[in-house]
Amino acid sequence: MATPVAMVVGYSIFDNVITNRDPQVVGFANYVQIITDRAFWQAGRNTLVFTLVSVAVHMVLGLTFAMLLNTDLIGPRLRAAYRVVLVLPWLFTIAIVAVLWRMLLDPRGVVNYLLNTVGIDVGLTDWLGSPALALGAVTVINIWAGYPFFMISLLAGLQGIPAEMHEAAKVDGANPVQRFWNVTIPQLRPLLISLGLLDVIWTTQQFPLIWMTTGGGPMGATEVLSTYTYKLAFSRYEFALASTSAVVILLASLVLAIFYARSQKMKD
């Protein structure tokens, strides 16, 4: 595990590697170039928006559907059917998800047809081809593909809460909203923190979904740090700069990993 990390860190202090037979040490010049690159900061902003919105909605949808599947208000057969349907997005590979949503969001696809049918005039909107809409579109796709993990994990957490706690709160006069905030959420807090940190780490490093839907375009509207780094290496063949970008991402990921490790230690 240490060898490739050390190699990338080493590459980052040369003027270029792999394509240059005699690379020269440039110290921190590559880091200065990356940090002052406007495209890097745009990719960073896109990554931040993409991550924060995805994680927040994953939490809300996951908890909502988990509570739906944990309630006695619907019968066991209907609950079992819901479990199958709601977990389906998680069963698809990223390639299938990308192809599926590219067809759905095509200007002549199902989404535009349905919106126009119900009276929302969107015409032939190209959701993945519009600089103003593309980032929101890929964020929705990522939310759709990722919420089942939260749903399943939180459902297990809900089923682990003793029923006696809810019954005691009910006897004390707590209404459903009060029981949710004072019993359910405190019991799920360690799980919510762990899931949130893990999802932040995973989402900030999302590459295949972006690459197979928009490729970081149009006009950099969906460029994230992972696609930015990939293009430096395999489109521009600037492997030293790509390594530098990777090291910067690694440092940010280490901060998140430390927070996650500390949250697990506190939970234990």
Results as ranks from 00 to 15, higher is better:
63 L>Q: 04
132 A>I: 02
257 A>W: 11
243 S>A: 14
104 L>F: 15
35 I>T: 09
107 P>H: 09
248 V>S: 12
228 Y>E: 10
205 Q>I: 00
230 Y>I: 03
29 A>P: 00
180 F>N: 08
117 T>I: 09
251 L>W: 06
262 R>P: 06
166 H>I: 05
123 G>N: 13
70 N>V: 02
182 N>L: 11
158 L>Q: 11
120 I>T: 04
208 P>F: 03
140 V>Q: 10
166 H>S: 08
10 G>N: 15
240 A>Q: 01
72 D>F: 08
106 D>N: 15
116 N>W: 05
4 P>K: 06
211 W>L: 12
27 G>K: 02
112 N>P: 08
51 T>R: 04
69 L>Y: 08
75 G>N: 03
197 L>S: 05
66 A>H: 01
127 W>I: 00
144 W>T: 10
161 I>N: 03
170 K>S: 15
113 Y>I: 03
246 A>Y: 08
35 I>K: 00
17 V>T: 14
102 R>C: 10
175 N>P: 07
77 R>S: 12
45 R>N: 06
73 L>A: 12
101 W>D: 15
132 A>R: 10
15 D>C: 12
35 I>D: 05
162 P>E: 14
205 Q>W: 01
210 I>M: 09
232 L>N: 07
102 R>L: 11
108 R>V: 02
261 A>Y: 09
70 N>A: 13
58 H>T: 01
65 F>Y: 06
198 L>A: 05
123 G>R: 08
66 A>M: 02
60 V>C: 11
209 L>Q: 07
5 V>L: 15
232 L>M: 12
